[in-house]
Design a protein around this nucleic acid. Structure first.
Lengths: 225, 225
DNA sequence: TATAAATCTTAAATTAATCTTAAAAATTCA
DNA sequence: TGAATTTTTAAGATTAATTTAAGATTTATA
């Protein structure tokens, strides 16, 4: 789950980022509307948290421009108490939710979970499952039967991404964007190395699932026949 | 245990704080409703002591707003004798207890203990246990078998927090928020230093429990195999 | 089947996180 | 006040995660 924060109050933005990172989200952060639009247009985010009052370009205009460019990433608008009209307009322009400042962290997390649920992600107790394995997103553990292995940060994020898109093919490009960030200069080989690490761990667990390579296309996770 | 006092009579607030700190609680204090709401919304408190008559924002509104934001920190309302109606409304809004001014310190301490018990913390004579060790919260002693060591204030608060969340992973961020306070500028290294102190003392006690590091995530306390 | 491109696998090199200490600074207590 | 204790700071050591790079293997197809 990759989240973009567009908020000019740097302390608030930093605080939100801390909390989200703590809750295992991958977070990017920008402080003005123009950059926000640029980042948002990449389309790699699962959720965008967007302040209305922004330098360079108003939050509502960012929202409008994104939708005009067919980016339908769920957006949570941050509004001050006295911007109720903006809030209404925001919802008209296609925002998905809004929070009035000041807001509680728990509420923000609840909204994020709600939005990702709406998208079809099943979140139960921070554990996601596929076939015979469970991935504990709190402890970064991969469990199969009575065995378990510890995953590193990146290993965990990658297999989480694959599991959430099970059945579909995920390209190296997508994995790079999602896990390393679109402005990273990591290469395909980085992905290949991590896929190799994960396969080794899956083999150790004697899991039924495997990560299939589709040459020239990408990877796909599935149970073996 | 971190407690927030929201009370505009500064002398009274100071007095309460003094007593609570004496009784080994970590205490923050604010003098108006708006700040009280802001602090409360962080969700880091175990108990909030809230006066009804407040400048900026009425105590009942603070309470209502907190509950609306899904902050269910136990709240003790402070009311003057002639505010009985407020008291009733307060309980309706989700307060957990009330005290009529003037009240005795002993009564306040009793209510606090009652509320922390209600939360499911097992407090018997201020001693909490995990595996083969006991932590005496009154004397700051960590006991294992026939050995014991004295802990400093912060050591005690940190291990108390870890024990209360045993099995779960606790991030450095959370420890900083809870023990140093969310507005402190202490760094990760401060936490690391204290974890190191605690491990040394646990080793000296030959305890079965250890504090596990989950790199990039946090710490978790558990019995060794 | 020979070739080239893509992918896999490993080990070494690099980077980053955490641990540990000791000393400095702050606080507490007699 | 001054000694003892606690807390913070800082720097070097240790450990783990990540990246890099090079050679091996696989696959598609000419």
């Amino acid at each position: 789950m990759r989240i973009l924060i567009i908020e000019d109050e740097k302390k608030l933005a930093e605080a939100i980022k801390h909390i989200l990172v703590k809750n295992k989200y991958i977070v990017d952060m920008v402080h003005d509307g123009i950059s926000g639009l640029d980042y948002g247009l990449t389309g790699i985010y699962d959720i965008i948290i967007l302040d209305i009052m922004l330098p360079e370009m108003n939050g509502l205009d960012v929202l409008k421009e994104l939708r005009k460019n067919k980016i339908f990433t769920p957006i949570i608008l941050l509004t001050a108490k006295d911007e109720i009209q903006d809030k209404v307009r925001g919802l008209d322009y296609g925002a998905d939710d809004y929070l009035t400042k000041p807001f509680s962290i728990d509420e923000l997390l609840a909204r994020i979970r709600a939005l990702s649920r709406r998208r079809g992600d099943i979140i139960v107790d921070d554990i996601i499952e596929i076939e015979d394995i469970k991935l504990n997103l709190s402890t970064y553990e991969l469990i199969c039967g009575n065995k378990s292995v510890k995953l590193s940060l990146k290993e965990c994020h990658i297999i989480e991404f694959l599991i959430k898109r099970k059945g579909q093919v995920v390209s190296k490009e997508e994995i790079l964007e999602k896990i390393w960030g679109f402005d990273s200069d990591a290469e395909y080989n980085n992905v290949e190395v991590y896929i190799s690490f994960l396969r080794k761990k899956l083999a150790y667990l004697h899991s039924r699932i495997n990560i299939k390579t589709l040459r020239g296309i990408g990877y796909s996770i599935e149970g073996s026949i």
